[in-house]
């Protein structure tokens, strides 16, 4: 009796052990597959040769990173800062400014909308919610040309300010996640405050916002990250105004037929440089991200 129990136990343990080993193997293989492109990108960014079909550099160099900020032409002559074909530093700065500004404005707008829809009850609420849903289903860049013409009237075409405004305006439709979060905050808090004579304005600032740290961080994070990856709209909006391009447009241009020969490894270096801070930021903030997407089911 005891004997069989023992063998059963060891059998069960052995099975679990085997399962775990299998999982370790699967995970290792998957991690290799998942990290391979990233590692390849990093390796290429240190390569002195411009080959795109090799893996390890034939010669290691830091040159590609230097060329992002101090480029030279095909003959090896240095190019002055104002003549840089790919002013990477300027683009990073542009993207950073746009990302920060649009994160601040968008977060504010999203919080305002979601608070109104979640905590306040008014006549046209349902209709507006439906409108928001419907508008969100039109492909975004369908409206690029029109947006450009509108910005032209305001004198903001091809400007960073214009870009921030467009991003912030568009962010308004992304209220669902934070509305979901506000829905989870007990309404009794509002009621109690109302009895104490607080206005809805005060409730918003004093009671709700301090409780919403995870969703504020989530919203700010997602709105901060999106300008770093947006190529389509910026390339249409900024046109030839290279000084105002963002990093995504610039990097994409390094890979076109005209430039890829000399700039492929520089592209890799540029990609690695922006990926590092964003990755770190994302890893630090991931719990907020999860909390956001799951609508507060997982607390940040």
């Amino acid at each position: 009796m005891t004997n069989t129990q023992n063998t059963m136990k060891t059998g069960y343990a052995a099975k679990r052990q085997a399962a775990n080993i299998a999982i370790y193997i699967i995970l290792t293989v998957m991690v290799i597959v998942w990290l391979f492109p990233i590692v390849w990108l990093i390796l290429r960014s240190f390569s002195a040769d411009g080959a795109y079909n090799a893996i390890f550099p034939s010669n290691w160099t830091f040159d590609n990173y230097i060329r992002l900020f101090n480029d030279y032409d095909a003959a090896g002559n240095p190019i002055s800062q104002e003549d840089m074909p790919f002013p990477y530093g300027t683009w990073i700065l542009n993207t950073f400014i746009v990302a920060v500004c649009s994160a601040v404005v968008s977060t504010l707008i999203i919080l305002m909308i979601s608070y109104a829809f979640s905590r306040l009850r008014f006549k046209s609420r349902k209709a507006l919610l439906n409108c928001g849903l419907i508008l969100g289903m039109f492909p975004g860049f369908m409206s690029m040309a029109a947006t450009y013409s509108i910005m032209e009237i305001f004198g903001l075409k091809q400007s960073l300010v214009g870009l921030v405004i467009v991003y912030s305006a568009g962010a308004g439709l992304g209220y669902q996640v934070s509305k979901g979060f506000f829905d989870t905050i007990p309404r009794s808090l509002d009621e109690a405050a109302k009895i104490d004579g607080a206005t809805r304005n005060q409730i918003f600032w004093v009671i709700i916002l301090p409780l919403s740290k995870p969703i504020i961080v989530y919203t700010a994070l997602t709105t901060f990250l999106s300008p770093w990856a947006d190529y389509i709209f910026v390339s249409y909006f900024m046109k030839a105004n290279k000084e105002n391009w963002t990093v995504a447009v610039g990097l994409y241009n390094m890979l076109d037929n005209e430039h890829i020969g000399r700039y492929f490894t520089v592209f890799c270096a540029g990609a690695v440089l922006i990926a590092i801070p964003i990755t770190i930021l994302f890893i630090i903030m991931q719990r907020f991200y999860v909390a956001g997407v799951t609508g507060g089911a997982v607390k940040g």
Binding site: W34, P37, L251, Y252, A271, I278, T279, F282, I283
Partner: peptide, 20 residues
């Protein structure tokens, strides 16, 4: 390890994939 790939901007990883 997996989150790293999610964090790198998508257009970068996709272009890398195209070249690979």
């Amino acid at each position: 390890m997996f989150v790293i790939t999610a964090a790198v901007p998508q257009f970068v990883t996709l272009l890398v994939m195209r070249i690979l």
